[in-house]
Design a protein around this nucleic acid. Structure first.
Lengths: 241, 241
DNA sequence: CGGTCAGTTGAAAGGCTTCAACGTATGTGG
DNA sequence: CCACATACGTTGAAGCCTTTCAACTGACCG
């Protein structure tokens, strides 16, 4: 059951047994990829899409001067490059953060789903729109929040998403990002991320470091980050007070 | 032919006559909406999706302190809130910029397209992924470029998109955005936008004002904004030197 | 012709970056 | 088991890009 976490914890994602089985049989192979490895490159022709089964990955773009901008962060259950299906190629890079396990689904299999299973097709479409909603929230985060707000918002987001796929215990979860990575996700320098992480810790909001995050005061963190989990389309959980 | 501009000028968007006809007959009604009017509100239940036929619109989110963040800018041919189809509601606001004409397509009609016309359905899906690609570029723009770069990038993007749908003449096009709006799109204040617009003009790159933009030196503007039109999936045009 | 809204400009303040050095953990080879 | 390399994290000081605050201009309109 490699598709176990696909759309897990999301509203409006009712899949029938038959649909889950269809998705499962569409998988060609499952592969484990080392940490910090490029999976797909900008402009590359895509013949399959990959579902992240275990581990963490991200999308990113490179600026001319060598700086990176992270575009999204992915957790198990995310259909990472389904964006390459309708257009047959992708416009950004995809890479792993930690060691990760991917299920490969050839595009011909998705073609068949489009023809035979309109509802499952709509759910695949839906999952790419969840990414779009995530992107919009990142625009808001970077465009309108200050450094502390950006970090707080990012932490709230990862907390909720990890919780939805059962990867949170005692308000802590794996977050294998360096301060450099966090800066590339939030449009900040690693130096400034360092100072903000420290402030969040001193203020008792969250502890970030050593590949882990622990949320100490979600309510306060959500206030600082102007975070509202609606855009994640999650079933009810601890983040809805 | 209200769907005349749908996917116009985009690569990988071959629609058959029958598909265009099917889309055309899916339209329930066409409506003209005044400038600066809210079309859909965050959290609203959606029963139809709208195709922008003429005029300009945008997506946006409000921050607590009253500031807005624009999330995308829409030109004729854009299927603005198709994002509300698979999930039945939207997570952001949509409003007009100028007076605009919309074609309304009920979700039941899209359901039928999903069942009867898998290829057209894939094209609808594709059009929402163009939005996602746009969102990613906006993240990059705001996260990694300075003020001049952000404005330059935004101008290159609107220039290319307007050109693709035949709304550019003599390198000039309608851009009915105030400097305040431009600031909300780029994560800047209107005061700073003013200074940058002035600099772009003095440097001979572009003239922005009075609801119009004119590109004087696209190559230089693209360099400043680190702009590459790949993500727009456009047929060849003047922007590919 | 006053009122409003967009645009313009100057001066001061501030948040974040830059630069640079140092600390700390982990791993590897002699 | 220590010496060394490397990568990540920490801290301070200086500088700059952008914001903030404030005032003024110009265009349009009832």
């Amino acid at each position: 059951m490699e598709t176990r976490d696909f759309l897990r914890g999301r509203r409006r994602s009712e899949l029938t047994e038959a649909e889950i089985a269809a998705l499962e049989t569409a998988i060609e192979r499952v592969e484990t990829v080392p940490a910090r490895k490029v999976m797909s490159r900008r402009g590359e022709r895509m013949r399959y899409s990959t579902l992240l089964v275990e581990g963490y990955a991200c999308r990113y773009m490179d600026a001319r001067d060598g700086y990176r901008q992270l575009l999204s962060y992915h957790v198990p259950g995310d259909f990472v490059d389904l964006h390459g299906y309708p257009s047959r190629f992708i416009d950004h890079d995809v890479g792993t953060i930690s060691e990760a396990k991917f299920a490969f689904i050839p595009h011909e299999q998705i073609d068949r789903i489009m023809v035979d299973r309109p509802h499952l097709a709509a759910m695949l479409w839906f999952s790419t729109l969840l990414d779009a909603a995530l992107h919009r929230e990142w625009i808001f985060r970077i465009g309108r929040l200050d450094a502390a707000g950006r970090l707080a918002h990012f932490l709230c987001e990862t907390f909720c998403r990890m919780s939805a796929v059962g990867r949170v215990s005692d308000n802590g979860y794996d977050l294998p990002l360096t301060q450099q990575d966090l800066g590339e996700a939030t449009g900040l320098t690693s130096v400034h991320v360092n100072r903000i992480v420290r402030r969040l810790r001193e203020d008792g909001l969250a502890i970030v470091g050593r590949g882990k995050a622990r949320i100490l005061d979600f309510g306060q963190l959500a206030r600082v980050g102007e975070f509202d989990s609606d855009y994640l389309y999650l079933e009810d959980g601890p983040w809805k007070a």
